[in-house]
Design a protein around this nucleic acid. Structure first.
Length: 159
DNA sequence: GCCAACGTTGGC
DNA sequence: GCCAACGTTGGC
């Protein structure tokens, strides 16, 4: 199993919003970047864990933990002309965009960027890299452990 | 609102 | 297949 970091704009879907959804589960719709899409299609599997990251907001940072709960399936918003994610080059026979389902695991205190940057063990995290824009990034198992056990002081076996 | 970084588009 | 122009992301 793998670990991930998934960005969401809290104005769109915050960790609280996810916790309030039916079955506390949401399809990760709206990804329109091939690298992020390919992670979902080729590498993310049910059971993988991910940090839920709030981006483009006043308090960017890790806000919770989620679990991948379904394999990638076509993203319905690409077919919907009313959606801001509509893609006229996509067809139902040949979808371009896919999304996994993620399910709420728990909320965490907010771990902001300065706190992440303060840990030498996290120096290589993609989300901390200059100019990083990728909305889904792999997280190293060692980095996962540092954040869960040392920063959040959680028991990883309870996730 | 600024601006650096990056991805995509499209002419050649 | 190159690359300039453009649009978007996202922290500050």
């Amino acid at each position: 199993m793998r670990y991930w970091l998934m960005k969401s704009e809290p104005d769109d879907c915050s960790i609280d919003d996810l916790a309030a959804m039916p079955a506390q589960t949401v399809a990760w719709y709206g990804v329109r970047n091939y690298q992020a899409r390919n992670f979902m299609v080729h590498q993310m599997r049910p059971g993988d864990l991910a940090f839920f990251y709030h981006s483009s907001c006043s308090q960017p940072g890790i806000a919770g933990i989620v679990r991948v709960s379904a394999d990638a399936a076509p993203d319905a918003t690409q077919f919907d002309p009313q959606s801001r994610f509509f893609d006229d080059k996509a067809t139902r026979e040949k979808p371009r965009w896919f999304c996994v389902d993620v399910t709420f695991v728990r909320q965490t205190r907010l771990v902001g960027l300065p706190e992440l940057r303060a840990h030498p063990a996290l120096a290589n995290m993609r989300v901390l890299a200059r100019g990083n824009r990728l909305s889904i990034t792999p997280v190293d198992p060692d980095e996962w452990r540092v954040i869960v056990e040392q920063i959040l002081e959680l028991d990883p076996h309870e996730l």
